[in-house]
Computed example of a mutant assay.
Amino acid sequence: MAPKTPEQQMIERAKALRLHGILAHWEEIEDKEWIEQMLCWEEQERTRRSLERRLSEAHIGRFKPMSEFDWSWPTSCDRGAINALMSLEFIPEAGNVVLLGSNGVGKTMIARNIAYQAVIAGYTALFVNASTILAELASQDSERLLQQRFNRFTRPRLLVIDELGYLSYSTRYADLLFELVSRRYEKNSIIITTNRPFSEWGEVFPSAACVVSLIDRLLHNAEVLAIDGESYRYKEAQERRNTREAKRKSPSKKAKAES
């Protein structure tokens, strides 16, 4: 196949941008020097607006970048595996990720960073708390509204469900989560952060018959990363408290001068 001429390439770009008015009068303007610049401006502006829209819809919230993650703090953390997740190779494969660890070890920070990288790379993403998504699904009072909510949570290429396991849920909630995981199965990726090993998910969803099936479907084509250690937030709070106490105990410059 012969390579496309510069004019053919510009026509294809105009078609991709749906500039129908420009295309309708192409013969009148095809020799104008400003066409190339105009196409570049339009492409750049649409890329910028698309990124802003996807970031807004992702609800990632404020987060620290991974450059500020203290890798020395966890007693066990596979840095190489986490860095590999930042490459987003699991998303085209519709793979899932489970970040497992106690409170404050950085699960949410890592999940937010992955979601942000996904949006920057052009994917759609949605970050949501486990209690929020399950309550929203359970509160729908008609099948039509429930299907609309399922569509909302099924559509993004990456769905992050944060803090699953901190509360216990009824069988109804377990069934809804199983349905959501099933709808996304082998189509779109899920990241779940949890403080509970899978052996304890029966306590998160007591009496739910679908727990084993839920875990099985979630873990198929999934990577489970365990992060062990004490709470980094507690460490930061302790450091701030120590700093305040040190300031209170040390004499002020004015007091030193007077003495």
Rank of each mutant, 00 (worst) to 15 (best):
S131K: 14
S102T: 15
K187F: 07
K64R: 14
M109C: 15
G80Y: 09
F127G: 00
P197S: 12
P206C: 02
V98T: 15
E136K: 14
G122F: 03
L134T: 01
A111S: 13
F205A: 03
P74T: 09
S142I: 10
T171P: 04
S189D: 02
Y185L: 06
V105K: 04
D141W: 07
W71R: 13
E163T: 08
I91L: 08
S139L: 09
Y173W: 09
R149C: 02
D141R: 15
T194I: 12
S76P: 01
S67M: 08
I110A: 05
I161N: 03
T194W: 11
R183N: 10
A135W: 04
F153W: 10
E136T: 14
S199H: 11
V160E: 00
N83L: 14
S170V: 07
E163F: 13
G95R: 07
R112M: 11
N113R: 04
Q140P: 03
S168M: 04
E93H: 12
A208L: 10
L88W: 05
I191N: 01
P65A: 02
E163G: 08
G104D: 02
L164E: 04
R184I: 05
I120V: 15
R79N: 10
P74E: 02
A130W: 05
L145S: 15
T124Y: 06
Q140C: 08
R172K: 12
G104H: 10
F63H: 09
P74N: 07
V204S: 00
K187G: 05
I190C: 06
N188H: 15
S87C: 07
F153Y: 15
N188Q: 12
T75Q: 10
V204A: 01
E163N: 13
V160R: 01
I114K: 05
G95W: 07
F127T: 00
W73E: 01
D70C: 12
S199N: 11
S182A: 15
Q140F: 01
F178W: 13
Y185P: 01
E68P: 03
S139F: 01
Q147S: 14
T124V: 05
R196G: 05
N195F: 12
S142D: 11
A118T: 03
K64I: 08
N188G: 11
E143Q: 15
V160W: 04
